[in-house]
Amino acid sequence: MSNKVKKNLTPVQQEYYDFAKQREPKRPVFSNCVRAFLVGGGICLLGQLISDFFLWNFDFTEKTAGNPTVAILIIISVLLTALGVYDHIAQWAGAGTAVPVTGFANTMASAAIEHRTEGFVLGVGGKMFKLAGPVIAFGVFSAFVVALIKTVITMLGGL
């Protein structure tokens, strides 16, 4: 990506680009990854606990226990977002809080709450999907393509 950007710049701009690149703080990739691993793993561990709780105490199977588990994680995440706690965890954990389903709920809740001053229809309703939109759009489209290919293959007699 950076090479393509560089090609369109004048020599002075290129010089500045290199200079800025030098001064850019190095990202502590390793420690970020360790944090993401610990927090992300912890959230999945919590998910496993909740799912087992539903399995043992209610009439759920291994497959159907996923739905209430995700719902509970989402409620927790929305609550923590509303109370302003999730941002603090997210700042420390990076992708560890963004990648689990809690991160999806967090982006929706934070966008909804942040834009409530713009009104409930245009602010909350309209901006709610500002960050979650890409996930839904790309997820649905890729799933559509994958399912279409698989269905066509099955219809043609399978592999």
């Binding site: 993401a36 992300g40 793993g41 959230i43 999945c44 561990l45 992708a95 560890g96 990648v99």
Partner: peptide, 12 residues
């Protein structure tokens, strides 16, 4: 824990 953590590391 391990698999969930690793997926988050890929994201990071």
């Amino acid at each position: 824990f391990v698999v969930g953590g690793l997926i988050c590391v890929i994201g990071q």
